[in-house]
């Protein structure tokens, strides 16, 4: 069976409306992945419907804040908290917010690119 598996680049302004549209069309949240790149992060939000998978790719600077999608997809909280704790991505209004105490590790943001 052939199925879509694509990465769609998206700007920070279009991001929240795009996730809302996904929810309205009953897409299933699949995963959230953060990648450290010099000076910022690449965030990938994957959604799936039937067998198609679409990944929304968001590129943000280190200090830029991303709105949490937990108000649209409540189940996103574990992976958003993980991105915040391990990478230091700034995500606002996660519900519930663990405040970097999800894994309770000794090191702060081990995955962040350090100079």
């Amino acid at each position: 069976m052939e199925a879509k598996n694509e990465i769609r680049k998206i700007s920070l302004n279009d991001f929240y409306p795009a996730v809302l549209a996904m929810k309205a069309e009953n897409w299933r949240p699949v995963q959230i992945c953060a990648v450290s790149v010099p000076g910022g992060y690449e965030m990938s939000y994957s959604f799936s419907k039937n067998y198609d998978m679409v990944t929304l790719r968001l590129e943000v600077d280190e200090e830029q804040e991303i709105a949490s999608i937990t108000h649209i997809y409540p189940c996103a909280y574990i992976q958003e908290n993980e991105a915040e704790e391990l990478f230091g991505v700034k995500i606002s209004h996660i519900e519930p917010d663990y405040h970097d105490k999800l894994y309770r590790i000794d090191e702060t943001t081990p995955f962040k690119v350090k100079e």
């Binding site: 069976m1 009953n26 699949v30 067998y51 997809y73």
Partner: peptide, 23 residues
């Protein structure tokens, strides 16, 4: 679906989704 369940959890709720179908 909205909570993102997968595997036997999802299939036991009546959604026929099994990645093995991708071949």
């Amino acid at each position: 679906i909205a909570m993102g369940a997968v595997g036997p959890m999802l299939r036991a709720s009546g959604e026929p989704y099994d990645v093995r179908m991708l071949g």
